[in-house]
């Protein structure tokens, strides 16, 4: 295994980790503030990707496509919150799981109805296409580097938003005592709609950014959703910091496991068996990581409750 390949894979792991963070941050905020488990978060990711692909196809502009993904996902999130999610806050988790599962069915089949079963393609803009030379003679796709950058900027912005702004203070207050801030005159249902739309917009952005690397298709959101669940279970539900650490851990484990494990088994097994064992173990590696974390910290790395 050459060093260059290893560094490339570390960068790939960072890139998938950062995108996972965008998904997980919304999920963990929604859970932390509203106490809601939202399976339909993956659908909002898909909505963002489809909106971006449709707008990019019509206008040819990647920036407009990104804006469209944010707007479409936030709007879809707000509509869903106002019509369905709002009724679920006082219900038990079973009702939340089923209602949001129903939303997945509606979103997925609805999207298939509108766009058809064939995947759409979202092209990387020309300015960001092609590789870039990193120090040490490593060639790496510029677009993926930009994604890492965008993800980190959004992460910093989110931390600032939560820590410094008035809305952030309200979100944190809502997490710790919703009756009290309602009594203090904060419109709690408006706050919930805003938080849900914010989480949805982050998911939509992730969908659009990743959609340019992979294809945009129905069902693209669910694998990411489940990874995001693993992330917030590892990081601790409700903790944005936990979501960031968990997302990077999961991104790196998933990527590096797939590259390193088959090679590791090849050192003492015959090649075909090593590939089989290595790739199956690699596909399970993040779940093994999660089980390991849970053994020692049942509420996740940064989970207080």
């Amino acid at each position: 295994m050459s060093t260059i390949l290893l560094i490339e894979q570390v960068l790939n792991g960072l890139q998938s980790g950062v995108m996972l963070f965008l998904m997980a941050a919304g999920l963990t905020l929604i859970f932390g503030v509203m106490g809601l488990i939202n399976l339909a978060h993956g659908s909002l990711y898909m909505v963002g990707a489809f909106a971006a692909a449709a707008v990019a196809g019509a206008t040819g502009s990647f920036v407009l496509a990104l804006i469209a993904s944010l707007v479409a996902a936030a709007a879809a999130g707000a509509v869903v919150e106002l019509t369905v999610i709002r009724r679920l806050y006082d219900r038990d988790h079973l009702d939340q799981v089923l209602a949001t599962f129903a939303l997945i069915l509606i979103f997925s089949e609805g999207t298939r109805w509108i766009f058809g079963s064939f995947p759409l393609f979202l092209d990387i803009p020309d300015a960001l296409a092609g590789p870039v030379m990193l120090p040490g003679g490593i060639q790496y796709p510029l677009y993926r580097l930009v994604i890492i950058g965008v993800g980190l900027v959004v992460a910093i912005g989110l931390f600032q938003l939560i820590a410094r702004t008035r809305i952030g203070i309200r979100i944190r207050a809502g997490e710790s005592d919703r009756e009290m801030i309602a009594a203090l005159g904060v419109d709690i249902s408006k706050l919930y709609t805003i938080v849900f739309a914010l989480g949805a917009a982050l998911a939509g952005l992730a969908g659009a950014l990743v959609g340019a690397i992979q294809s945009v298709q129905v069902g693209m959101g669910e694998p990411v959703l489940i990874l995001a669940f693993v992330v917030i279970v590892i990081g601790g539900i409700g903790s944005i910091k936990g979501a960031l650490v968990g997302a990077l851990l999961v991104g790196l484990t998933d990527t590096l496991g797939g590259v390193l494990l088959p090679g590791f088994f090849a050192t003492f097994m015959e090649p075909s068996a090593a590939t089989a064992v290595g790739s199956s173990l690699a596909s399970m590696s993040i779940y093994i990581l999660m089980a390991g974390v849970l053994l020692f910290r049942p509420t996740g790395l940064y989970g207080g409750r």
Binding site: I37, H93, F229, V230, V233, S279, S283, M284
Partner: peptide, 24 residues
């Protein structure tokens, strides 16, 4: 070892673990 929403997510994750194992 966990309850509530953690339990839901963890059972989901273990299910997916077997799913990916069967695929690979």
């Amino acid at each position: 070892r966990t309850t509530g929403v953690y339990f839901i997510m963890i059972t989901l994750a273990f299910g997916q673990m077997l799913y990916y194992f069967a695929i690979s």
